[in-house]
Amino acid sequence: MLDRITSMRVFVRAASAGSLSAAARHLGMSPAMATKHVDALEARLGVKLFHRSTRRLSLTEAGSRYLEACQRILPEIDEAEASIASQRVEATGLLRLNAPLSFGTRYIAPLLPAFSRRHPAVKVELGLSDSQVDLLDGGWDLAVRIGQLEDSPLQARRLADCAMQVCAAPRYLDERGVPRRVADLAQHNCLGYSLSTLVGSKQWAFGRDAQVRVAISGDLVANNGSALLAAAWVARA
């Protein structure tokens, strides 16, 4: 099926030049293709747009009315496309970005001044939350998350790998000893992250595919990594 907008452009150019061959040359197509575009318009509309002779085209009454409509519509289409294209070149508007609290504070917020200098017409609203957010209901344009991606119709892009490590304060290790095996962690005061999408707050997982797991227990569960880090640093045994 031929593109209707292109067919309209062929029709307008042919009406102006009085020739399908001239319209074809101007639009960079063969005369046969230009003829097909006009034929397709006439078939769709159910009327003749041109009186055709071997020497020149002339508009029918229906063709004159259709020409007026095309001359009004095509510039509006061109203007709409130019407006959208200019936005691709220069980003404008409000960007609503959601990220985990600790990650957003440490890594994203420091980048925003440089982003604003590069895109002065963009205003950024940064929301920080460790909980999973509904982008559509919350009106967010995009979100950065750490962990496994659940099934979703939304588009996602992997930014980087995130290596997880088991850490403890020196004082804690002096008092409780250093675990030598994964299974040893079951005997330690392990702090749980309540928003873990992989294993929850009562297990830790190890290995690329999280195939090694150990049940943990401790005196604190929190929904924020910075809070857990602060608690671990005071070395409560």
Rank of each mutant, 00 (worst) to 15 (best):
M1G: 14
L2A: 05
I5C: 03
V10G: 00
A14W: 04
S19V: 04
S19C: 01
A22M: 00
A24S: 09
R25V: 03
L27V: 04
P31W: 04
T35N: 15
V38E: 05
A40C: 01
E42M: 07
R44G: 05
V47T: 08
R56G: 02
L59C: 05
L59M: 06
T60I: 04
T60K: 08
G63D: 01
R65H: 12
E68L: 10
E68K: 09
Q71T: 02
P75K: 02
E79C: 07
A80F: 02
A82Q: 02
S83I: 04
I84T: 10
V89R: 06
V89P: 00
G93S: 08
L94W: 07
N98F: 12
L101A: 08
L101E: 11
T105L: 12
S116N: 12
R118Y: 03
V124T: 14
S131N: 10
D134Q: 11
D134L: 02
L135S: 04
L136K: 13
D137T: 06
A143R: 12
V144G: 06
R145H: 13
I146F: 02
S152K: 10
S152T: 15
P153F: 02
Q155H: 09
A156E: 05
R157P: 02
L159A: 11
D161L: 10
D161E: 11
C162T: 12
M164W: 13
A168P: 10
R171C: 06
Y172M: 09
G177N: 11
P179T: 08
V182S: 01
V182Y: 01
A183G: 06
N189V: 01
Y193M: 06
L195E: 04
T197S: 13
T197N: 14
D209L: 09
V214D: 05
S217Q: 03
L229C: 03
A237I: 06
